[in-house]
Structure formats: C-alpha cells, structure tokens
Design a binder for these strands. Structure first.
Lengths: 245, 245
DNA sequence: CGTGCCATTGATTATCCTCAAGAAGAGTGG
DNA sequence: CCACTCTTCTTGAGGATAATCAATGGCACG
C-alpha cells in the first residue's frame, strides 16, 4: 500500500481498469494528508459542510450516540476506504469519526466529486456502484443485528473484516490484527463489553477462532460461513453495465 | 400521484427542479407497468440479472432470510420509490421482494442508468445523492436495531414511515394507513409478533398513539421524536455541490 | 510503584422469546 | 344465513439470552 499508487487506486483497481485520466482525477483526492493519534475525535456528528477523507493508514470508525449515551458504531474504516461518503447527500455530518489507532487521512472537498460526475462517467458509475454495494453491506449488517445471536454476530463481524482486508492485502490468509477493544466491538454489534468477552471465550473454546496479542485467527472459516450465511460482497461487483471508456 | 406526472418525478422534484430533458429520461423508467396481488413474491434473493422497479401504487417490502428461516425485512417500499437500486452493484439480487397489498410496478432495465450517467450529470448527482441518503437512513435503522428497546423501535418505525409518506402526500397530518401485519413489523424491527402486539398496546395505553382499522394516529409526535432522537432525512438534501444544469 | 485501561469472572436481573390457547374478523361454500 | 376455515391480534405462563452490577487481575505507561 502505497508510495506511487495510493490505497484508493489499489482498491478501485480491484474492480475496473483505470485510465491514466482516472488516476489523475483520483490523485486530487489524496493531495494533502494529515496524521492523528489513536483515540482522536476527528469530527463530530452535526458538524457542517465537512470534507471527505481517504484513509491512508490505520483504522478508524464512525458512530452515533443516543441522547442518553448508548453508542452505535456504524462503520469501521480501513486503509483505502473513503470516509464520509454517505454524508455527501446531507448538509450536516450524521456520525462522529474517531481513530482506533494512529491514523493518516487525506481530506478532500465534496466538490471534487462534481468534477468526476461531469467528466468521468465510467468513474461516476464506479463511485455509484460502491455507494450501492455499501448499501448491500449495511443490509447484511442489519440482518445480523436484527436476527442473529451474539455468537453469530461476532462470527459475522470477523468474517466481514477479513473479507475486506483481503481486498487490499491479497497475501492474507486466516489471521489478522484486530485493534479494537471489546467495548468498541460491543458498540458495533449492539452488545455489551462483558458479553463480547464471554462470547469470544466460547468461540475460542469451540475451536472456531484463536486470539493472541491483538490478532485473531479464523480456525474454521467454512463453519463460520455456514453459521452466519456469510456472503462476500467485496470480492466482485457487476461492472458490465458501465459506460464504455 | 399520477396521470401525467409520475410519483418518481414527484419525489425527485422535491429535491431539484427537473428539466424537460430530465423528465423525458425518467419517463423511460415508467414506460411499462405490471400489477401484482397482495402477498405475491415478485423475485427471489439470488436471482440473476434483475430489473429495477418504480412503485406506482401500493406497499411492498424486501427481505432476506437466514437458512433456518429467521427473516429480516430490510426495506419498505412506497409509491415513488425505486426498488432494487442497491443490487445494481452486484450480479445477483440480494433480497426477496414481496407485496404487502395490491401493487402496481414499472419495471426497467439496469442499462437505463447508463444513459443517465453519460448524458445527465445533474440527474446522476441526484441519483448518487439518493443512494447516499439511503445509506444514512440505513445507518439510522442500524442504530435503532442495535441500541433501542422494543418500545423505541416501534416509535422510530412509525416516525420514519410518516416522514416518508409526507414527501409525496404533503397534505398528511398525524394519521396514516399501516397495511403491514404485526409479524411483518416484527421482522422489520428484529422482534416477534407477540412482543410487537404487547408493545403496541403499551404505546397506546401511554397515549403516544392510537390505532383503528389499519390506521395509526401519532398523538405525541414531539415526545416520540425525543424518545428516539429521530432525524428526518427525507425533507431535505444538500444539492449545492451538484453540477450546473 | 501507582494509575488507568482492558479483559475476565460471577451473581443477579430484565427484556424479549417461546409456546399455547383463545377471540375477533374476513372470506368461502353449502 | 350459517357453519367453517384462515388469518391476525391478544393474553398468559415460563424460559433464555443478554444486560447490569461489581470485583479481580494483567498489562502498559508515566
């Protein structure tokens, strides 16, 4: 993940062949970069007129709170992800953005999208497709939240994370670093930190996973896929209907 | 809702002024129409190469099942909605579409989007915005599913439905028809039909709502908004960054 | 060597589910 | 017009999953 080629270009190239003109336009998204320490709040929900970010390094997440403090983490951001895309539709930010660890982000203004839409129909189609694919992913999460047990939810989350990480790290096998703590995992899955702990231990005892120093190893991926009816939405998209280059 | 102006045009016109060229392109979405009886399965999750639909009349919903039969309703469709938009990104349908009552739909092919993206940047921006706005809506639902009690979930659902219906029916006040049964509401909110019944009764006893012959009346909208921290995502969008006409 | 964060563990509680049965209403056929 | 069925909503009893509360130990960090 990159010196010359950015993680964004790497991620998008997974789906279509980008022309030099496309790469040039995308490069404007990563002109500037800013670093943040772990546990930093980068912007708050309700802020106005925000920028978008491309993640260059590190994990972050977006969350919303209920007035009484209950928290829901809504999206976990990895390198190559675009943060804040959904908020483009609205005048105000809907979620708060917080870093999990030390992070490097590339901010860019909404108006950069305008250029893409006017001049690059093929890239527009790709951006639209990613927005729509993300909707499908949200639908999958919704199903997990509404109808899965705690055990299934955690299995689902682990499968989802590893599927996403494999897109940009093709060498990855069955082990990945999980820098989030159990309170954050609980806020993502609609559980409590205590119950996440207990459920992780059961998953380990049942031989589905193993944990060591912040890493998770998936021992029985097939079994976990069956348990959660997991579908990988990241590996491929339908680009057949795109405008020609 | 429509003879000359379609519900789709009506819904989109709420956000931007459409040119005649725009209307003409959108009209291709509603060239043909098909009617379905209530309780019909229109297409199954996993089907290939599907069409999109504009809803002309009646309610429908999209759902996914887990292998053991647990069901999650993912989206409730009203007149003017485009059904199947998220699936454009993928080769196969992700959800099953079922009618709630007698329904009239206008099917159109994916490729119609291609035309828009190539020739109508402003309309492209609007479609992209709607896709992104729908993501925000999914995020709101996610928060409800993850962190709200049954009582709050139902209140949230009712507020969401009435906010959506108000877009196309500006005359609507505090009462609307809710043609879904309690099992379907349960499948939407991640509850059971029994508990939905009990919770509805409590809401009624507490004077928040009233029910009569399939209609729901919101008696204490302010209180319910406070209870659920409800945000109306439908009333306005940020169109300021759109390409000029 | 404190201090703070985090994971773990146990005891208790509550929300919501499961199972079961009954009532009200709509539609059907005789 | 009257059974009859079917669906939906309601009600109650009992149970399970996950929450809450509280305490402990490990580990990193200053």
């Amino acid at each position: 993940m990159g010196h010359e080629s950015s993680c964004l270009v790497a991620k998008l190239s997974h789906y279509v062949t980008l022309t030099d003109a496309d790469r040039e336009k995308l490069a404007t998204f990563e002109k500037t970069e800013r670093s943040f320490a772990g546990g930093t709040e980068i912007h708050q929900g309700g802020d106005e007129n925000r920028e978008l970010y491309v993640v260059k390094r590190g994990w972050a997440f977006s969350y919303t709170d209920l007035p009484d403090g209950r928290r829901q983490i809504v999206k976990i951001h990895h390198p190559g992800d675009v943060i804040g895309f959904p908020d483009v539709a609205l005048k105000h930010t809907t979620t708060t953005l917080r870093t999990v660890e030390d992070v490097c982000l590339c901010p860019f203004p909404k108006s950069a999208l305008d250029l893409i839409l006017r001049e690059a129909p093929r890239l527009s189609a790709l951006l639209l497709s990613i927005a729509l694919r993300d909707q499908v992913v949200f639908i999958d999460v919704l199903r997990a939240m509404g109808r899965m047990s705690a055990r299934e939810k955690i299995a689902y989350m682990l499968l989802d994370l590893i599927a996403r990480l494999r897109i940009t790290n093709p060498g990855m096998t069955d082990t990945f670093r999980l820098p989030m703590n159990q309170g954050q995992i609980a806020d993502y899955l609609g559980l409590t930190n205590v119950y996440v702990s207990k459920t992780f231990i059961r998953l380990e005892q049942d031989g589905l996973i193993r944990r060591h120093d912040g890493y998770v190893q998936i021992l029985a991926e097939e079994q976990m896929i069956a348990l959660t009816d997991f579908q990988d939405r990241y590996a491929q998209m339908d680009t057949s209907w795109f405008p020609q280059a």
